[in-house]
């Protein structure tokens, strides 16, 4: 079963052609990020992990690296469980 990180990297690979993304690599610095990726990324994490991205989650830091995206998902999942 794929881990969260693997799923995130598999999704991002569609946008990062011929580039193997490291877990801590800054996806904004790579220059591939555009509005299409930004929107689809939000849609992806919401559908894949069953969470809702809200106003307060809209922070570039949350989406800067695979590690950060995984951490965001983890926090949202934890909040959902404790709610």
């Amino acid at each position: 079963m794929a881990t969260k990180k693997e799923k995130i990297k598999e999704f991002l690979a569609k946008f990062f052609r011929n580039h193997v993304l490291a877990d801590d690599e800054d996806i904004f610095a790579l220059g591939f990020v555009n509005s299409l990726l930004a929107m689809q990324l939000v849609g992806f994490v919401e559908k894949e992990f069953g969470i809702t991205i809200e106003d307060d989650d809209l922070d570039f830091e949350n989406f800067r690296t695979v590690n950060n995206i995984e951490a965001l998902v983890g926090r949202k999942e934890a909040a959902r469980v404790s709610a």
Binding site: M39, V42, L58, D59
Partner: peptide
């Protein structure tokens, strides 16, 4: 709507979609 700096990428783009 949304946060400062995210008005086009998320809010308007959501509407434009």
């Amino acid at each position: 709507l949304g946060r400062q700096g995210f008005g086009f990428t998320y809010v308007l783009n959501y509407a434009l979609d």
